[in-house]
C-alpha cells in the first residue's frame, strides 16, 4: 500500500463532565489508505462517531481533543487554525452524517445548498470557476449522485424530497469539491434496505470515479462486509482489532469480534441460540482495570484483570489487543 492519505496517531478525545471525564476516544491509531474504504465498527457509545468527528475537528460541544496527531497528506490537522480547517472541510475532507432529515436546512432549496460550498470554495476562495458556472456544477453533482430529473430537483425544498433523495443531496453537497477523503458516519442507518443498497452502491462508484478514500463508521457488520477493504473494531474508546476484511470475518482474533460476528442472525442460525455475552455497557468514566473487555469476556484469565493488553501484530497486517496472542 502506498502512503496513507490519513494517519491518526494517539488520538484522545475526552468529554469533561460534572461527574467525571468521559474518555470517548482513548488513544486511537489508524490509517486510511488512498482509494481505500476503511470501516470502523463498534457498539453504541464505543467512541467511533467521536473519532470520525475528531478527524474534521467537529467534536460535539463539551468534548476536547486532548492529544494526538491527525495527519492528512502529511499535514497535522490539529495544528491548523479554525480558518484553515474550515477551508479543508468540504474541499479536501467531507463528511456525511447519519440523519439526512436534520442535515439539510429546511428553508433553502437543494440547489442553493449544493451551490453554496461551490461558490464559497471554488469561486470566492480559489477563483477556479466563474460564478456563472455554479449552476452547471450543481447539476453535475446531482447527476453524479443519481438524483432523477435533476433540473426539477434543484428548486425542491428538503421536505419535498424522500429520505433517500435527501441523503443523495447531502452526498452531492459533499462531493462538489471532489474531496480526497469522505468521512461517512452511519450514512445508511436511517434508510430502508433498498435505498441503503443504492447509497452504498453510489459510494462505491464515487471511489471508483473520483478516487475518494472513504472512512466509514457503522455499527452494521453486514454493511462493512459489503463495503470495506480494511476494518477496525472499537471497544470502550480503543481499537481492539484491525485487519483486512476477509480475515476479520473468517479468522477474527479478539473474543469481542468473535461474539460480534456470531451474534448476527444469519440464515441457518438456530432460533434462541445466537451468540451473546453479558449485556454490560462499559462505563467510560469508570473503566475496568486491565483489559477493558475482561468483565464480559468469555475467555478472560487472571492476567486480563491486571495487565492492560497492547495492540500487537498477531499475523501479518492483523492487529489485535488481547493477551491470548502475546
Amino acid at each position: 500500500m502506498s502512503e496513507p492519505i490519513l494517519r491518526i496517531r494517539g488520538l484522545k478525545t475526552y468529554f469533561f463532565m460534572e461527574r467525571g471525564t468521559v474518555k470517548a476516544v482513548d488513544g486511537v491509531d489508524l490509517d486510511v489508505g488512498k482509494k481505500q474504504i476503511l470501516g470502523l465498527v463498534g457498539e453504541t457509545g464505543c467512541g467511533k462517531s467521536v473519532t470520525a468527528h475528531s478527524v474534521l475537528k467537529l467534536v460535539p460541544y463539551g468534548g476536547t481533543i486532548v492529544a494526538g496527531k491527525i495527519l492528512f497528506e502529511g499535514r497535522d490537522l490539529l495544528k491548523l487554525s479554525n480558518e484553515e480547517m474550515r477551508k479543508v472541510r468540504g474541499t479536501e475532507i467531507s463528511m456525511i452524517f447519519q440523519d439526512p432529515e436534520t442535515s439539510l436546512d429546511p428553508v433553502f432549496t437543494l440547489g442553493y445548498q449544493i451551490g453554496e460550498p461551490i461558490e464559497l470554495h471554488q469561486v470566492i476562495e480559489q477563483h477556479l470557476i466563474s460564478p456563472k458556472e455554479v449552476p452547471k456544477k450543481v447539476l453535475e453533482a446531482l447527476q453524479t449522485v443519481g438524483i432523477p430529473d435533476p433540473k426539477a430537483r434543484v428548486d425542491s425544498y428538503p421536505h419535498q424530497l424522500s429520505g433517500g433523495m435527501k441523503q443523495r443531496g447531502m452526498i452531492a453537497m459533499m462531493i462538489t469539491g471532489t474531496p480526497k477523503l469522505l468521512v461517512a458516519d452511519e450514512p445508511t442507518t436511517a434508510l430502508d434496505v433498498t435505498i441503503q443498497a443504492q447509497i452504498l452502491d453510489l459510494m462505491r462508484k464515487l471511489r471508483q470515479k473520483l478516487g475518494t478514500s472513504i472512512f466509514l463508521i457503522t455499527h452494521d457488520l453486514a454493511v462493512v462486509a459489503e463495503m470495506c477493504d480494511r476494518v477496525a473494531v472499537m471497544y470502550a474508546g480503543q481499537l481492539i482489532e484491525e485487519t483486512d476484511i476477509i480475515p476479520l470475518f473468517e479468522q477474527p482474533l479478539h473474543p469481542y469480534t468473535q461474539v460480534l460476528i456470531n451474534a448476527i442472525p444469519k440464515p441457518g442460525a438456530k432460533r434462541g441460540k445466537l451468540a451473546t455475552i453479558p449485556p454490560l455497557i462499559p462505563n467510560l468514566m469508570r473503566l475496568p482495570r486491565g483489559c477493558r473487555f475482561h468483565p464480559r469476556c468469555p475467555k478472560a484469565t487472571d492476567k486480563c484483570k491486571r495487565v492492560k493488553p497492547q495492540m500487537i501484530e498477531a499475523e501479518r497486517g492483523h492487529l489485535v489487543r488481547c493477551h491470548l496472542y502475546s
Partner: peptide, 24 residues
Amino acid sequence: LLAAVPIPDPRKKMKKREILRGEV
C-alpha cells in the same frame, strides 16, 4: 429486497447483484 440486504460475508459482495431502482 433479498438482493439489497447486505450479507455479513465479504466474499459475497453485492456488486453483481441487481440494485432496485426508484423509491417506494
